[in-house]
Design a protein around this nucleic acid. Structure first.
Lengths: 213, 213
DNA sequence: GAGCTATTTTGAACACTGTTCACGGGGCCT
DNA sequence: AGGCCCCGTGAACAGTGTTCAAAATAGCTC
């Protein structure tokens, strides 16, 4: 019946995720976790260095799930034989939007945490998770017949990703209306449409030194 | 020599802004403010309901300054007789990037705060400040000869703005390298270029039901 | 200026954080 | 059984934000 170290760690993380989802970062309290897990406060510090590490671990799980969702979405389209670049990018974006919507409480905490630690040290395993997603988007762009070298394709992928990210996060800070979801999706559709068309034209990187009158 | 209520409020806000800029939201402490302002902790609560209100007031000042920066940037272009839509949008984006860069410490706190209070009440005077900026962008788009009705132009303005926002915030969570600034600007240039070209093509809102082979 | 009242300022006290660490119980090997 | 060590424990500590009775100050009347 007694849980071993790893099982207890997972129990703690599950509780922590629920707390974060329900009340944001302010709701992640050592004593609450301890009570709900049926252990003492001190025991948490035997499993994790501090609450930040708990938070980081929860975030890692979230990012892993997000990555899986993205990969699944691509696999689904593959299965359906969809090769259109715009559709595939929209599918990725949809997976992202769905994910954030399903984690409205804890996703902001991921960003807030990332931001707090931004001033501190260096080798974040965080970014590695996100880079996977960049790579997927870059892969999709590669399938399109835009004439982009690797650097520019990576830049485009990052731009696209950051833009979708901005739309989603900007959207969810406003009113909690369900109409918001519709607005967000309209913005994403516009962005992706405009992006693909802009790249198709091939001149995305040609700065308007030559003014088109 | 004694400061009246309003003067002391401004002194408190100035101190609070410095604290936020230096150490983020965790650095905004009642006792620190009191000490630096030469008053007691209790006095802060005579000037502001709680620390959140202090934070909110600082954010308002920042947003006001950001709005002013945007307006100034547009006025400068006006003075130079620049009417090119792409240039004007880039100038707006540049103003935004410069602003965030100049407030690296406190700007994340604006977003984090907005997010924390997102679950709570309704009539945010916050969004009003941001709407001004949307309006400026929408105005610039109006000057372009895209065939967009008011709704779609507003949607495009929001999309553009959110995207730039996403690029900037995503950029500044990563390494604190100065190379980051370059990457951010490349992304913004790509986004704006692609956006304008996509809109010019006029088909941004025509979903690809008609596949262009 | 004295006396009185209203207002503001104060800082000790309270409730609640994260985090530590000496204590002691329980399992495990000899 | 004894000794050992590991690990869970929770009281204790150092910080938070916030409150509020009391003291200090300001303002007013005479």
């Amino acid at each position: 019946m007694a849980l071993n170290k790893e099982e207890m760690s997972e129990k703690v993380l599950a509780i922590a995720e629920t707390l974060l989802n329900e009340g944001g970062v302010d709701n992640l309290k050592a004593r609450t976790i301890a009570e709900q897990a049926g252990i003492s406060v001190g025991s948490i510090y035997n499993l994790f260095a501090d609450l930040d590490e708990v938070h980081r671990a929860v975030n890692m799980r979230l990012l892993d799930r997000l990555g899986a969702a993205g990969i699944n979405a691509m696999a689904e389209l593959e299965r359906q034989g969809v090769t259109d670049v715009r559709h595939r990018i929209l599918a990725m974006a949809a997976a992202y939007v769905r994910f954030v919507e399903a984690h409205r409480g804890s996703w902001p905490a991921v960003l807030a945490f990332n931001r707090r630690r931004a001033t501190r040290p260096g080798p974040d395993a965080y970014e590695a998770r996100l880079d996977e997603l960049f790579d997927i988007v870059a892969g999709v762009l590669k399938a399109g017949d835009f004439d982009l070298d690797d650097n520019r394709r990576a830049l485009a992928a990052r731009t696209l990703w950051s833009s979708v990210h901005g739309i989603v996060t900007s959207g969810y800070v406003a009113k909690s209306d369900s109409r918001q979801a519709e607005e967000i999706w309209q913005q994403v559709e516009l962005l992706v449409g405009v992006f693909v068309k802009g790249l198709e034209r091939g001149g995305a990187f040609a700065h308007a030194k030559t003014k088109p009158i």
